[in-house]
């Protein structure tokens, strides 16, 4: 099949005109027909290729354990998930913790707090903490990607939990890692950031703790989250690195406050290209997972 010249020509053509995903989409469709689904293969696929948008939510749900590997259990488990979601929502309404005018992201936060047994007393709700803000940022981004509120809540909750459980210990090391790769790619920029004192004040929290929620527009963000959900937090370092590299000329001419201000609010036009280059750079330094797909 690989020798079929017509097919190769077609792939090359698609590649040129931007339909690079045609072959990938077919191999993903084959993986999704497996019963039970092979989680490892799905992760590898998602590490290597961008997920076609029509399958993204389904693959995320499987990788995050919201849906089990056996497709014939999906209806049963999906029903359990819906009831769990509805019951929690109903209880919060009964307690008047939320009402119809509560912003949905805050609803998701209260639901998550109830499930994690850290819901504050209604009479003395404290101001939001940093962790709450991380959760809310991720919620706001997820809400732009996922239409159905039930799916949205489950994806936020499981993404947030999985990310912190799996990578919580690695997060403090990411700034050092960024510094390391920057010294490889652009030592002059690193020196500039060091000498102005900006390096210590890069927006590490929105970049790493929030996985770029609030920094990148959702269309670019979801391609980064494909990698995070399928098992890599290193990708975050390369997205940060590529942001620095893409704006190095401007950054070289800025002092510390200007750098910080610029990076906290980067232009939203080039982000697709930044993510593409970041993924290439990540594959270059960390290798491409080579399981048979």
């Amino acid at each position: 099949m690989a020798d079929d010249p017509q097919r190769n020509f077609r792939s090359a053509y698609y590649e040129k005109v931007g339909f690079r995903g045609v072959e990938e989409k077919k191999s993903l469709e084959i993986l999704l027909k497996d019963n039970p689904l092979d989680i490892e293969k799905l992760s590898t696929f998602s590490q290597r290729f961008p997920l076609p948008s029509m399958y993204r939510i389904h693959v995320w749900k499987v990788l995050l354990g919201i849906l089990p590997p056996h497709s014939d259990s999906h209806a049963l488990v999906g029903g359990y998930r819906r009831e769990q979601y509805e019951n929690i929502l109903e209880a919060l309404e009964a307690m008047r913790f939320i009402n119809s005018s509560t912003p949905t992201t805050e609803v998701y936060l209260r639901m998550f707090q109830l499930e994690s047994q850290v819901l504050p007393r209604r009479s003395e709700i404290p101001p939001m903490e940093e962790e709450d803000e991380d959760f809310l940022s991720i919620s706001r981004a997820m809400e732009e990607i996922i239409v159905d509120p039930m799916d949205c809540y489950w994806l936020i909750k499981c993404f947030y939990n999985q990310f912190n459980t799996k990578f919580g210990d690695s997060l403090p090391h990411l700034p050092k890692s960024l510094e390391h790769y920057l010294s490889q790619e652009e030592p002059r920029l690193l020196n500039h950031l060091k000498s102005t004192g900006a390096l210590a004040q890069l927006p590490y929290d929105p970049w790493f703790n929030r996985c770029f929620a609030g920094t990148l527009p959702e269309s670019s963000l979801q391609r980064v989250w494909d990698k995070v959900i399928s098992g890599s937090c290193k990708i975050l370092v390369f997205v940060g690195l590529e942001i620095l590299l893409s704006y190095k000329i401007s950054l070289m001419g800025m002092n510390r406050p200007e750098v910080v201000k610029f990076l906290c609010n980067i232009p939203q036009e080039n982000t697709d290209a930044i993510v593409t280059k970041a993924i290439d750079l990540w594959h270059k330094y960390c290798g491409t997972p080579m399981h048979s797909v």
């Binding site: 089990p68 590997p69 056996h70 259990s73 049963l76 359990y80």
Partner: peptide, 11 residues
């Protein structure tokens, strides 16, 4: 067994 386990976990 695996299928039953994941259903039970969700329940």
């Amino acid at each position: 067994k695996c299928q039953a386990k994941s259903e039970l976990q969700a329940c």
